[in-house]
Amino acid sequence: MLQTSRLTKTFPNGTSLRFPDWKVGRGEQWLLLGESGSGKTTLLHMLGGLLRPASGRIVVNGADLYTLPARALDRFRGQHIGIVFQQPHLIRSMTVEENLLLAQSFAGIGKDIFRIREVLHALEMEHKRHAYPQELSQGQAQRAGIARALVNRPALLLADEPTSSLDNRNADAAIRLLSDLAASERSTLIVCTHDDRVKEAFFKDFMFELRHERISNQLEKS
């Protein structure tokens, strides 16, 4: 499903990061751990097709991301990869529903109001579908951000510190939702975090993550 090989990234200041090879199976849920500044976000952006690595390759769902032409990579990202950011970053000039509609049209798949309602319903956001982002609470906005990442049924769902802006209760709910929805949509989930609340939540539900965490710790050391 996801495979990286010999990934490196060179930063403008000259430092260079080497990432160990990584293989993720379909439907698996991974935790990507590490201190801030350790390259978690860099790796996540590379996996999401947002950042071209200096060398190495990333294959997602059978597609070698950085050999695709720019336009095809954009489209691939829209259709197959969902990303949840630290801040929800909803488009402020549009309602929740329009934000999701926009995700459908930029990905080049047809308008599907039913799917939008379904996702919003799953996130208990249906009643807020005509609300503008500034009318939402932090937790609601983050849920809308998750809905937007999920609306196109992505094969790969990436989450970059999805809980850092949330309080305990909301953080817990967000993690549970991400995990449950990814499972029910059969999406592969990778959560990048240094939030202990997330670690604890994952530890309870997906015990096998422990092993992966160690791998990702090695990631940081390299």
Partner: peptide, 14 residues
């Protein structure tokens, strides 16, 4: 951010 998020959603530079 709006523009970057649109790119994430699949919008091309063009």
């Amino acid at each position: 951010y709006d523009l970057a998020v649109m790119r994430v959603m699949g919008a091309s530079r063009g």
